[in-house]
């Protein structure tokens, strides 16, 4: 099994469920990339930060955009710069090496010690993108033809890949990974999460806000359900505003921190004002 000093147990500011911790540890031990999926605000990205912090390793983040190509992560050969330099005689352009810049994956491979590599929001890129990385992640090496050089990982990085499921990931890619879907935290878990951020929050306030929060999430047809970060913002606003817990039970101050979309706000207000008590949504409390 893993060395005792390498076992991930969550970190001070990040609450990981026990199954998730186990899976992180298995992924590290077997050297397999870990694919994390889940609703926005369930802490997918933070997981990588937390692993890096808990295991005291450097974190390299590769943010994926719609235009990102797999090759960008390996290295970029800046031909335009070289071409430009060639026009003026003041620079030596014979050394190609100075125009080869390692991408995030390349940096992770070249690192002297094991790092945590976060490939964030992989689904933002083209559908074929993950497939282009198959070999590199499998073998943990790639080849730079311009230098005739093989970059081999000195230490297999701990690879965490997050996806918002905008696009589905290819099967061949997923086969090589370990997969975990983070569910939206339940109230008990959420209570712990809030306490990490606001350790001295009043019990009553916490209970009332959570009650309200999950109630709003149940409203049918919201375009964007409020997530953890919205809840935390809301609580912060309530605490700064010195709002009494009893007040939350009767109205919702700072609704704008929870619902950020006009239509949602309108829908919510309409539904909650029509019939007090007999709301048009699933009753939960």
């Amino acid at each position: 099994m893993t060395d005792t000093n390498k076992v991930y147990k969550g970190s001070d500011y990040y609450i990981a469920s026990k199954p998730l911790m186990e899976i992180v540890n298995v992924a590290i031990a077997l050297g397999k990339p870990l694919v994390i999926k889940g609703e926005p605000g369930t802490g997918k990205t933070l997981l990588a930060h937390s692993i890096a912090e808990a295991l005291n390793k450097k974190l390299i983040t590769w943010n994926i955009k719609s235009t990102t190509k797999a090759k960008d992560g390996l290295y970029v050969y800046d031909t335009v710069q070289r071409l430009n330099d060639a026009r003026f005689k003041d620079k030596d352009i014979s050394d190609i090496r100075q125009y080869i810049k390692l991408g995030k994956l390349g940096q992770a491979f070249k690192s002297e010690e094991q790092v945590v590599l976060l490939i964030d929001e992989i689904d933002k890129a083209d559908i074929e993108f993950p497939n282009d990385l198959l070999n590199e992640l499998d073998e943990m090496s790639f080849y730079i033809p311009e230098l005739d050089e093989e970059v081999v990982a000195k230490h297999r990085p701990i690879v965490v890949i997050t996806s918002n499921s905008e696009k589905e990931l290819p099967d061949a890619f997923l086969r090589r990974c370990i997969f975990y879907y983070i569910e939206f935290p339940d109230e008990e878990m959420m209570e712990k999460i809030v306490r990490v951020h606001y350790p001295d929050i009043e019990n009553k306030l916490l209970r009332e806000t959570l009650k309200r929060f999950y109630w709003i999430r149940e409203v049918d047809g919201l375009k964007k359900k409020p997530s953890t970060s919205e809840l935390l913002d809301w609580i912060k606003a309530l605490m700064i505003g010195g709002i009494n817990a009893d007040k939350i039970a009767s109205e919702i101050p700072f609704l704008g921190t929870l619902l950020k979309n006009e239509q949602d706000t309108a829908r919510f207000i309409r539904l909650s004002s029509t019939q007090q008590g007999g709301f048009g949504f699933k009753k939960r409390f």
């Binding site: 099994m1 899976i23 999926k37 589905e168 370990i178 997969f179």
Partner: peptide, 26 residues
């Protein structure tokens, strides 16, 4: 993974880790 002993002979481990290995979409 099973042979390497990650399951601690518990059904819970088997469930969560098995799922992580075998199921690649929620």
């Amino acid at each position: 993974a099973l042979y390497k002993g990650y399951f601690q002979s518990s059904l819970n481990h088997l469930y969560y880790i098995g799922r992580a290995f075998l199921v690649k979409s929620e």
